[in-house]
């Protein structure tokens, strides 16, 4: 066996359970595994990670803007290693299923995805927005690459001109 015995085993188990759905699996180093999975299989994956693999702590969800696609990383840990599962969703109609059914603690992370990236989370129970202020303009998502401060605060451009 290679030096990444534990990681190789995880790879095998994931392949046995999800087959070709898991793509681009890389073992970056000891305790670090990355892969991609279709968005619709996320809840199923979370369930398997929690009960089948012992990765029972969802550390956080990181949203990203990859141009044509938006998406998110789901970082899971068994306290020792971190497995990061990536799911993509088209920019034209970004949506991801909720994983709060498996990890109730994921709720604030999913609200962040909705607010900061504008990814609709299917199945997330209604609630207050987080983390942006209540009067923040609707339809603007600051962590998208094409968002500028002046989109939400046009007076910023004017004050910059004044200063110059």
């Amino acid at each position: 066996m290679s030096e990444f015995e534990k990681e190789e085993k995880i790879k095998e188990k994931l392949a046995a359970e999800f087959g070709a759905a898991i793509t681009e699996l890389t073992i970056q180093r000891k305790n670090r595994v990355w892969f991609e999975i279709p968005a619709d299989r996320l809840p199923e994956l979370m369930k398997f990670m929690k009960t089948g693999l012992g990765y029972d702590h969802l550390a956080t969800i990181t949203g990203f803007d990859g141009g044509e696609h938006l998406g998110a990383y789901y970082h899971l840990t068994d306290t020792h290693g971190i497995i990061s599962a990536r799911a993509k969703t088209p920019r034209a109609n970004p949506n991801l299923p909720t994983v709060t059914g498996v990890f109730p603690g994921a709720e604030p992370y999913e609200r962040e995805l909705e607010d900061l990236f504008g990814i609709k989370i299917n199945g997330l129970k209604p609630g207050r927005r987080y983390p942006l202020p209540d009067d923040f303009p609707a339809g603007q998502h600051p962590l998208r690459k094409d968002w500028k401060l002046t989109d939400a605060y046009p007076e910023e451009a004017a004050s910059k001109k004044e200063a110059a």
């Binding site: 550390a59 956080t60 990181t62 709720e107 604030p108």
Partner: peptide
């Protein structure tokens, strides 16, 4: 547990930085 994610695109500025502070994990 404090958790950070970092993505670099090869320039001198990061592509994405994610910070998850411990308090966030303790709120639920």
């Amino acid at each position: 547990e404090d958790f950070h994610y970092l993505k670099s695109n090869g320039t001198d500025k990061p592509e994405r930085v994610k910070v998850r502070a411990p308090t966030m994990a303790n709120y639920p």
